[in-house]
Design a protein around this nucleic acid. Structure first.
Length: 289
DNA sequence: CGTCCAGGTCTAC
DNA sequence: GGTAGACCTGGACGC
C-alpha cells in the first residue's frame, strides 16, 4: 500500500470538509465499487486507463491521504487525485450554506463540515446508479449496481462503452434490471457515441440549475426524484429529493401526521438555493456520527 | 398461493 | 396541468 497523494479537507471557500460525514452522506456512497470498511477509511476502485485501480482514502488531520496497493505512474496518480477531488467536490464552496446553518438550530451541527454529498467520479455513474434506485427495494439497487461493477466493469464502474456493448439479455438475465435495462442501455449508448455529455451538467460549465434539471428530466428513466437526486450530487442544492423513503422520514422527524410535497417544499423555502441540501441533512442526521 | 410495494417514470387520456 | 395504469423484480405479508 503506497500513499501517492494528499488532498486538503477544505472547500473552495475555505470551509472545513468532514471526511466521515462525507462518506456517510448518502446511500449510493456505500454501493460498489466501494467496499465496506470498519476502520474509518473509504475503499473504492477507480477506472484509470480502462482498468480498475483500488484506492484507499484516509483522513489525516485536515487532509486526506490517497493510497493504492498498486504502484501508479505520475499521470495515473494525477488522474486518481482528480477523481477523488470530484467525489468530495472540493472545488465547491459551501461557505454560504454554513453561514445560514450557523444561525439555524436544526442545521448548526453541519458546520463542522457535513453537507458534501459524496459523488461518483463521473456524472454518468451517478445518473446510472440513481436510475437503479427507482421503483425498487434497496436490495435491487445493490444487485443491479453490483452486476454492472463486477460483471461489466471488472471491479470498477463500467464505462459508457462497456454498458452500451452489453446485450439486452445481459440487463435482463444478469443485472435483472427489468424495464430499466432499456433506459440504461440507451443512456450508455448516447454517452458512448458522444451525443450526450453528462459531465457538462457540472456547475460552472454554462448550464444554470433550470437547464441542468431539464436536461436530466429528458433522460430515459429520470423523473423528478432522480433529477433532484442527481442535482444534489452535482452540487446543485435547490431541489428536494422526495421519494418513498424521504417522505415518511420527514414525517417521523418533524412529528407530523402528513404533509403534501408542496408543504414540505414551503417549509424549506427559507434555505433558498440550499433548500434541497437542508432537507437532506435534516432527514439523514441520524446517519452521521 | 396472490397481492402489495420498494429511495418512480412513462404514456395516454 | 393533473391523474390513472402499466411496468421488471423480488421480498414481505396475508390468506
Amino acid at each position: 500500500m503506497a500513499t501517492f497523494g494528499s488532498l486538503p479537507l477544505t472547500g473552495a471557500g475555505g470551509e472545513p470538509v468532514s471526511f466521515p460525514h462525507t462518506i456517510a452522506s448518502h446511500g449510493l456512497a456505500s454501493l460498489k465499487p466501494a467496499t465496506p470498511s470498519d476502520d474509518g477509511a473509504y475503499r473504492i476502485a477507480l477506472r484509470i486507463d480502462d482498468a480498475a485501480v483500488a484506492v484507499v482514502l484516509r483522513p489525516e488531520g485536515r487532509a486526506m491521504s490517497v493510497a493504492s496497493p498498486r504502484r501508479l505512474g505520475a499521470r495515473a496518480a494525477d488522474e486518481a487525485l482528480a477523481q477523488v477531488r470530484r467525489m468530495f467536490r472540493l472545488d465547491d464552496d459551501l461557505a454560504p450554506f454554513y453561514a445560514i446553518a450557523r444561525d439555524d438550530d436544526l442545521l448548526r451541527w453541519t458546520t463542522g463540515g457535513a453537507g458534501r454529498m459524496l459523488a461518483s467520479p463521473t456524472v454518468f455513474e451517478d445518473v446510472v446508479k440513481t436510475i437503479c434506485t427507482t421503483n425498487c427495494a434497496w436490495s435491487g439497487t445493490i444487485r443491479m449496481v453490483g452486476a454492472l461493477v463486477d460483471d461489466l466493469g471488472g471491479g470498477a464502474f463500467p464505462s459508457p462503452g462497456q454498458m452500451a456493448r452489453a446485450k439486452e439479455s445481459w440487463y435482463r438475465d444478469v443485472a435483472r434490471a427489468g424495464y430499466r435495462g432499456a433506459y440504461l442501455r440507451a443512456l450508455a449508448r448516447e454517452v458512448a457515441r458522444g451525443a450526450l455529455d453528462l459531465e457538462a451538467l457540472r456547475p460552472g460549465r454554462g448550464l444554470d440549475d433550470d437547464a441542468c434539471e431539464a436536461a436530466l428530466l429528458a433522460l430515459p428513466g429520470v423523473g423528478p426524484y432522480a433529477a433532484a437526486h442527481a442535482m444534489q450530487l452535482l452540487g446543485r442544492h435547490h431541489r428536494l429529493i422526495l421519494d418513498s423513503w424521504t417522505r415518511p422520514t420527514y414525517l417521523r422527524l418533524s412529528e407530523k401526521k402528513r404533509a403534501k410535497d408542496t408543504t414540505i417544499v414551503r417549509a424549506f423555502k427559507k434555505y433558498g438555493a440550499y433548500a434541497g441540501l437542508a432537507f437532506w441533512l435534516y432527514i439523514t442526521r441520524e446517519w452521521h456520527p
